[in-house]
């Protein structure tokens, strides 16, 4: 082995160090998921069923409506178009659900979990930037989850015959990635907070499933919630803090055309929503960095970086 190395601190070195850290931390997620073959079945295929249920609801509503409008071909055409758009909304929501669940269970609760299995202290002792650690988890999580997201999308198109019309693929990609980064940024922020809340964190994640599916409009255009008189807009505005809300609204506009649902169910136009998403992404990342730094100091002061293994 070489004699004691001279330690560098220049920018190039730091970038290299943190990139390596990102790769290092994402590695277990990417290979780990593939290494356990049951994973594909449990994490990518089984959840499709839940989404299928929502698809069938609209199919069944649509079929009853269609039958009731017998004889009126224009009305029937409208019903068919609406039903397709609603089902497409569900499928898009299903892809986003995959990421949201990953954010909740593999980002937000992850640092707490790492602490319990004794890895956190080793991470906190290493020279890499803490954001690189969270970044690695996020990248790994995204890769791991995109399999499920893609299978949802494919099933939507092949099995349920959903028709997407993409006119502007570049904006679509921009919106998708902005939403994704904002989502994982939010997850990073939660990660530090969860470290503080400990065991209650698990329940918090559980609590952010259905209520958020609801308030962010994962399975229906969220504009519908805005139009419920009274409490609807309040819930929807609260739900908008989860980037999935604007992300889904923009994605639906971009894939169904802004005239779908008579153009009555969108919140803003796509551009505005994209700006909001970018803003959220930056904001959450910054907040994540500061809350992590704060939490790290707090934990170091109180001796809470390690729990089970002294």
């Amino acid at each position: 082995m070489k004699p004691a190395t001279v330690r560098r601190t220049d920018l190039r070195y730091r970038i290299g160090l943190n990139l390596r850290a990102v790769v290092g931390r994402s590695y277990p997620r990417i290979v780990g998921a593939n290494r356990e073959p049951s994973w594909i079945f449990f994490e990518a295929l089984l959840p499709l069923l839940g989404i299928a249920a929502y698809v069938f609801i609209y199919q069944s509503f649509g079929a009853r409506s269609f039958a009731a409008a017998a004889g009126n071909t224009t009305a029937q055409a409208v019903i068919s178009a609406n039903t397709n758009a609603l089902i497409a909304s569900v499928v898009l929501g299903g892809t986003m659900v995959a990421f949201w669940l990953n954010v909740l269970w593999s980002m937000a609760s992850q640092l707490y979990w790492e602490k319990e299995i004794g890895n956190l202290q080793l991470y906190m002792m290493a020279p890499m930037n803490r954001m690189a650690l969270l970044g690695g988890m996020a990248v790994g999580g995204m890769v791991m989850t995109s399999m499920r997201a893609v299978s949802t999308l494919v099933a939507g198109i092949l099995v349920f015959g959903v028709i997407f019309q993409v006119a502007d693929p570049l904006t679509l990609l921009a919106v998708f990635f902005a939403a994704l980064i904002a989502l994982y940024g939010l997850g990073m922020m939660f990660a530090s907070l969860y470290l503080l809340w400990g065991r209650e964190a698990w329940n918090l994640s559980a609590l952010m499933e259905e209520p958020i599916f609801f308030s962010s409009g994962f399975y229906f255009p969220v504009g519908g919630l805005f139009r419920v008189p009274g409490w609807g807009p309040i819930i929807a505005i609260i739900g908008s803090f989860v980037p999935a809300t604007f992300g889904l609204d923009a994605l639906r506009q971009l894939t169904l055309g802004s005239t779908a649902f008579g153009g009555q169910l969108w919140i803003f136009d796509v551009k505005t929503e994209l700006y909001i998403l970018v803003f959220m992404a930056v904001l959450f990342l910054i907040l994540a960095r500061y809350s992590l730094r704060y939490l790290e100091t707090l934990a170091k002061r109180e001796g809470k970086l390690t729990s089970r293994h002294q």
Binding site: G16, V31, H309
Partner: peptide
């Protein structure tokens, strides 16, 4: 730092991969 009896790493990785991963945090 190495502590006796610690249980670091991820169960799904091999011994070699685990050590490699930690070395990445040091660049």
């Amino acid at each position: 730092m190495v502590s006796g009896g610690e249980t670091s790493g991820y169960g799904l990785l091999t011994a070699r991969e685990n050590v490699w991963m930690f070395s990445q945090f040091y660049g």
